[in-house]
Design a protein around this nucleic acid. Structure first.
Lengths: 193, 193
DNA sequence: GTCTATATCCCGATAGAC
DNA sequence: GTCTATCGGGATATAGAC
């Protein structure tokens, strides 16, 4: 793995763990096993390296979500699969957590990949809800965009509840609550595998 | 206003804006118009001052939520009022945002007020859902605890979506989606006042 | 490309005068 | 109670040798 790669991967891990404000170049270099010179040779500085790391994390999250959402099953089943998929709940969302970083929100370049990723996810879910509405799996009165926003918000907020309590249970509870509300009348939602 | 009060209020504002890791004693002192000595006279250090600030913010949030949840109306209407109440959406939740602060989560004393507040809110909402179930406003098959968790998660996650996009619209969309799912069959959810 | 040395400023805390 | 002075260390970046 190249030095530049190691720097990006170290930054991704630290951004997830400690956020942008809490991540120092020194910590990145130590984790990557590199010296100061390497970092400033490959990147313009902390924001530039962080941008590379955030872009990659965003891409990865998108690919993971797409893997589940493009899978088999009815619209409800695909949303259920997305909500119940394995997650390292207590670590939080590596993309969503960046919205609580003032220096990320203040910098349009850093915020853009975060915004685009969550927006893509919302739009993809809205499409699936719309499908389900047309097929009669969901009530025709529902607004697909609003339901999609509620789904993404429940996941992001679930991380907050889990981290506050120090246990993934609250995340699971929120997700099950949403699934129960969303479930077609003739169906009992599954519990987590 | 006493110096000690000004220190706590300055810390509250900065914790909300920049989080624990992003808030320095120096910034607190400047905003409070105090010198170093004052802070270390009244408080043992940064964590001690932060604890006082977090406790007060937690109390305040609890009081605000109670004001709405104890209000008039059917259970659905009270939950609706809570979800649609005026919020400074783009600033995020002053309590929930602390869960993304690694140094807060790592310190049980700092995490406790955060956990207790969100847990209190969840329990209070669960009681209201339970009421609604008994009165037939909500489906008897619903789990009150799970619905309550979904409600709190939608709010917390709504802040994430809003801050990512730089607009409160996504928060409102998520909340409306949840209300549509929760609404008794014979009822159209209101839009935000 | 990568290293070490250095620069400047800020962090969190302590000491001690007033 | 409040102030300024000072501390050791870290944050972020630059310089320049190899």
């Amino acid at each position: 793995m190249s030095t530049s790669e190691r720097l990006i991967e170290s930054t991704r891990a630290l951004l997830w763990e400690r956020g942008y404000v809490g991540t120092s170049p020194k910590a990145i270099l130590e984790r990557a096993g590199a010296g100061q010179g390497s970092m400033y040779h490959h990147f313009k500085g902390k924001p530039d390296l962080a941008l590379a790391a955030i872009r990659r994390t965003a891409e990865e999250m998108r690919a993971t979500a797409a893997g589940v959402l493009d899978g088999p099953g009815t619209p409800y089943e695909r949303i259920e699969a997305y909500l119940l998929r394995e997650r390292d709940v207590l670590r939080g969302c590596p993309v969503g957590r960046l919205t609580m970083d003032p220096d990320v929100i203040a910098d349009d370049a850093l915020r853009a990949p975060v915004d685009e990723t969550l927006d893509w996810l919302r739009a993809r879910l809205a499409g699936i809800v719309e499908e389900g509405r047309e097929q009669g799996e969901f009530a025709p009165g529902l607004d697909s965009e609003e339901i999609a926003a509620a789904v993404v918000a429940t996941v992001q907020g679930g991380y907050v509840l889990a981290r506050a309590s120090g246990s993934p249970a609250a995340f699971d509870a929120g997700v099950r609550g949403l699934l129960a509300l969303l479930a077609p009348q003739d169906r009992q939602p599954r519990t987590r595998p």
